[in-house]
Design a protein around this nucleic acid. Structure first.
Lengths: 225, 225
DNA sequence: ACCTGAACACCGTTCAAGT
DNA sequence: ACCTGAACACCGTTCAAGT
């Protein structure tokens, strides 16, 4: 992306600003997409934008701030909300978009999971979901719980599909590397051998199950409606 | 746990074996429980068992092997299976146990998510779940998808409760650190202010929703049964 | 077989310059 | 204000000893 050129800068402050936050963030995303999240170090990133490691500290307070800013950068321009009277459709759209972000930047999953504090922008899907579930007639506490159910499923599923952290959770991979001493996993072996993953269908299946369950729980909690 | 004693060992091979795998693994778990997963480095662990960093390489091929072995160690003696004819009950028991392991060792979550390949023992809940869902009459592909739904929910939920990686996903924390420039999150603010988490209830809610959804999906796919 | 010790290529970050 | 450069305390791992 940036020339890793050997154009040595002299020691003082350069005339024009050399770095901008967005420039650094774009380079960070490119680095993650190209070489994976573990390659995003202050020193490598500094090298990628043609600057000394310490120059980054003029724009970010430290690595945590950088990571948080990258996460913010990734979701900043995503539209999670959609019109429509049907709360099921709004939820499907919202988490579909969330899944889309993750699939577009697989490395972002590990990045997120190493964050100490998430940027607030990450919670826009939560806000939308709570509003939608209010329309669905769920109580406040049930709505929060349903949100966590939805987001845990979506993130986990997309992470697995992206193969990024959760590649480790691929039973096929574990079976293969486990070699011979593995036994007693007939169902898994059959499932692994039998089919190829249809991730779109699996995602849709999960949302369908959750929404069907929510409708049922909603009915039970206010049987008069 | 181990004396960090200054008992310098002389250079050659000691008379009795100094280290054993289980000894190292126990120390690793203790270190994670005591100081968090990011403190589990080869050098720190070596220090904790009173040995040079390189001594660990006689028992583990590298850090990945160590991490994988720790994960294996944690789930090795857990019984995920239970008797009983009801597949719902078997699933509840299995994932309740899985949640129990995570809550007992919060740091294990981040450890797992940094694994390149998971040990096969981690998939015992998968085997049990697929068998249970077969009893429930689900098709093979639906069963696999349902397993991922269940495990993603359980891991995410327990990780959040353990506050370990996913503490970052606490909207209250993000709100607080976000300070003033946060707006448009009325539902979240209300949810955060309103109630304290009842994690047991939230976990039960999620399982109930999923199982209810699975029953419904099962009914739809074989309406004649 | 199983440990020590020095060395290498990394890492985040502090502190002191420079202009 | 914004960059360079040296330094510090880490990290995983290789390689050469020792017995």
């Amino acid at each position: 992306m940036n020339e890793e050129g050997e154009s040595q800068r002299s020691r003082g402050r350069p005339k024009g600003a050399v770095l901008s936050r967005d420039q650094v963030l774009a380079a960070a995303v490119a680095l993650i997409d190209r070489e994976g999240p573990e390659s995003l170090s202050m020193r490598r990133l500094a090298g990628a934008v043609g600057v000394t490691p310490m120059a980054l500290y003029n724009h970010f307070s430290g690595k945590q701030d950088l990571l948080r800013s990258v996460a913010e950068h990734l979701v900043a321009h995503v539209e999670f909300a959609c019109e429509g009277p049907d709360w099921r459709q709004r939820i499907r759209f919202c988490f579909g978009r969330l899944r889309g972000v993750i699939l577009a930047h697989p490395g972002a999953v590990r990045l997120m999971s190493n964050l100490e504090t998430a940027p607030m922008a990450v919670f826009r899907p939560m806000e939308i979901t709570l509003a939608a579930l209010e329309d669905a007639g769920l109580a406040d506490d049930a709505a929060v719980r349903a949100y966590f159910l939805l987001t845990n499923f979506t993130m986990g599923q997309a992470a697995y599909e992206a193969g990024e952290p959760a590649d480790a959770l691929d039973p096929a991979k574990a079976l293969a590397s486990g070699g011979l001493e593995t036994g007693g996993f007939e169902h898994i072996e059959r499932a692994v051998a039998f089919e190829r993953w249809d991730f779109d269908a699996a995602f849709d299946f999960g949302l369908t199950v959750i929404i069907a369950g929510l409708e049922q729980v909603g009915r039970q909690s206010r049987p008069s409606a």
